[in-house]
Amino acid sequence: MMNDLGIGEIQNIANKLRLDVIEMTTAAGSGHPGGSLSAADLLATLYFRIMNIDPQNPYMEDRDRFVLSKGHAAPILYAALAERGYFPLEEIKTLRKIGTRLQGHPAYREVPGVEVTTGSLGQGLSMACGIALAGKMDGKDYRTYCLMGDGELQEGQNWEAAMFAHKYGLSNLIGFVDRNRLQICGNTEDVMCLDPLPEKFRAFGWNVIVIDGHNIRQIIDACEKAVRSRKNPTVVIMNTVKGKGVSFMENNVEFHGKACNPEEYAKAVAELKAVIQ
């Protein structure tokens, strides 16, 4: 267990994950760095502090489960799994290449630790509901964490799942929304507005916590608060910056689905290495 890692250490790991994202998407020549970087602090906190997991025994029965509903952020999931020891770190450079286990979007159990297949948006929360419900049925204590993008909440299936989670009292389900406010065609509020998002989830019967998604302390506190729920599912709406950690990617929708060119790569690596201890 690594539950005693301090906030500074987790922050450092988050930046390492960011560097991994840049390395692997650049090697691939494609992929989705923007929405991977905005989720780095959450994944570092979950995989290195919060979740009950064992990389040596990736499918142990009582493990906590993580569902990446925004499957295009696969690079950040692969980075977290590799840094946590689920598979060799050098393998990340095979991302998106023929014959790799690291598919462009995460594929069920291709890599140890990938719990479901995602990539087509709006489906992960339903799958997380099924996993959480199975836990309740079997009297297990595990928790199911599900990361959604904000743009993908435009898919109606999420709200079917939100009703379901409330009806079945899935207090063991903790959702996160990576609220970076950008999607391919621009600002979420221009493409199809989502606000007021907290009120929407509250109306569906969820506990809602709004935090700064780049503040490790706030992420930990939100998780601790969420696991105390005995009745309802909880969603943590994380205000984030798309491309967080690389200056020219921040709030730049161009890097939703584009890798760095050699100059950009050098600059991104330099910036990240400067903050990694």
């Binding site: 479901v116 339903s126 799958m127 099924g130 009806k167």
Partner: peptide, 25 residues
């Protein structure tokens, strides 16, 4: 206790079924 009414929401039904199956059901 093993019957799950999902309401008129077939897309969610399939996702929930997938999650249950991924958990050994």
């Amino acid at each position: 206790e093993r019957f799950i009414e999902v309401g008129i929401a077939e897309a969610n039904m399939i996702g929930v079924a997938a999650g249950l199956a991924a958990s050994g059901k």
